[in-house]
Computed example of a mutant assay.
Amino acid sequence: MPNSRLQAAMHAASLTIEQIATEVDVDPKTVERWVNANDRTPHRTTRRRVATLLRVDETHLWPSNTRHHSTPADGLAELVHLYPSRSAVPFGLWTDLVQGTREAMDVLVFSGQFLVEQHNALPIVRAKAAGGVRFRFLVGDHTSQAVIQRAEEEGTTGGLEGRVQMMRRYLQDVAGLPSVEVRTHGTILYNSIYRFDDQALINGHAFGSLAGQNPMLHIRRIDGGSLWEHYMRSFERVWEIADPEPAGR
């Protein structure tokens, strides 16, 4: 399993593998091994240099190396990074998560059209679905009271409804493909959920603010963790009551 905390910290600091290697005086292949294998860690002095460079605590990047395993450690270990807004999530992180999905990608949104327009997700979905990767998209029903109310609250009356319709239209290009399911819902969207295998981005929503202005949690699935199960149960509850979107509508 890759070190998702290290990946996120690198994206947040806008530093590449090569730049980190230069700063801490190691071979780039060594840094690549730290990133790609969660159980590969630098020597103690190098860990400190990397943590200082990325402006995060050493034990956040490599929690298994701390001698102090307290009860909250599992919960904290689930949290890879907290971004002050969805807009603050590095573009490259979205790209890595979408392109790196190997088993399952689940999305719960009202619109989420930025995945298509900014990250060109549909060709990736099409190619990965052909290889057996499962995709589930839960998008809003633009005629539902929940979507209409959200648009009024955020001051985009008509705008949100239009974005939802556009996303539904985009998804017609992949709906019905093997391993791809699209459903619509009219539930109150307390959180947008973007799940990529064992990692997820959770976008909470505050009254009167746009989705892109709200904080984003980057979490990962670990044994004994509760955050992951909490949000995935929420996704499944909405999935169960949502309406299948017919292909070729």
Rank of each mutant, 00 (worst) to 15 (best):
H43R: 15
H230L: 13
A211F: 02
R5V: 10
Y170W: 01
G158N: 11
P178I: 05
E152H: 10
Q149N: 12
S192N: 07
T71C: 12
M167G: 00
D197I: 13
W62N: 06
T157K: 12
A9I: 02
E18T: 14
Q19H: 06
V238N: 04
G186T: 03
R134M: 14
V24C: 13
A247H: 05
N65V: 14
V98L: 12
N3Q: 08
R126E: 12
G204P: 00
N120S: 11
V182Q: 05
L97H: 12
D96G: 06
F110T: 05
G155K: 11
A121C: 07
P178T: 11
Q118M: 00
R48D: 15
D141I: 01
N191V: 08
V164H: 05
A37E: 09
E103M: 08
D57I: 00
V50P: 11
R183H: 05
G208K: 10
P84F: 01
F235W: 00
S234W: 01
R134P: 12
L76K: 12
V35W: 11
V164S: 07
A21G: 07
Y190S: 12
V98N: 05
T46Y: 14
T59M: 13
G159E: 13
E32A: 14
R102D: 15
D106M: 09
A151W: 06
A104I: 11
T52M: 05
T143L: 14
E152W: 09
Q172V: 01
D223P: 07
R221V: 09
R195C: 12
E78V: 06
A37D: 15
V50A: 03
P246V: 03
G208E: 08
S179W: 05
G208D: 08
W62P: 09
E153G: 03
M166S: 10
Y231F: 14
I188K: 00
L61A: 14
V182E: 03
T157C: 08
G159H: 08
A130W: 09
P2H: 10
P178Q: 12
L93V: 04
N36G: 14
Y83N: 00
S234H: 11
M166W: 03
G224T: 09
G225Y: 01
I202A: 00
I193D: 04
R47C: 15
L115F: 01
D197W: 13
G100Q: 03
R47L: 15
L171K: 07
R67Q: 10
F114H: 03
S111M: 04
G248K: 08
P90Q: 02
A151H: 06
R168A: 09
